[in-house]
Amino acid sequence: MTSTEYKNLSVKEFTKAAEIYESDHAGVYNMCKKDYPDILAELEKEPFNDLLDCGCGTAPMLTLLHQKYPDKHYTGIDLTPKMIEVAKAKKMENVELVVGDCENLPFAENSFDAVICSESFHHYPNPQDFFNSVYRVLRLNGRFILRDMTMNSAAVRWFCNHIEMPLAHLIGKGDVRIYGRVDIKKLCDNAGLHLESFEKRDFCRLHAVIRKSRA
Rank of each mutant, 00 (worst) to 15 (best):
K16E: 14
A18L: 11
E22D: 15
H25V: 00
A26R: 10
A26E: 07
M31V: 09
D35T: 12
Y36L: 11
I39Q: 00
L40E: 12
E44R: 12
K45F: 01
P47K: 15
D50A: 03
L51D: 04
L52Y: 05
M61P: 08
T63K: 12
L64Y: 02
K68V: 09
K72W: 03
H73D: 00
G76H: 12
V86C: 00
V86G: 00
K91Q: 14
E93T: 12
V99T: 14
D101I: 10
C102T: 12
C102P: 00
P106D: 03
F107W: 04
S111Y: 02
F112S: 05
V115P: 07
C117K: 01
S118I: 04
H122I: 01
Y124A: 13
P127F: 06
Q128N: 11
D129G: 02
V134R: 03
L140V: 14
R143W: 01
F144S: 03
L146M: 12
L146T: 07
R147W: 02
D148N: 08
A154K: 14
V156I: 13
F159T: 10
I163S: 06
L167V: 09
A168D: 11
A168N: 08
G172L: 05
I178G: 03
D183M: 02
C188N: 09
D189N: 13
E199V: 06
E199Y: 14
F203I: 11
R205E: 10
A208I: 07
A208V: 05
A215T: 09
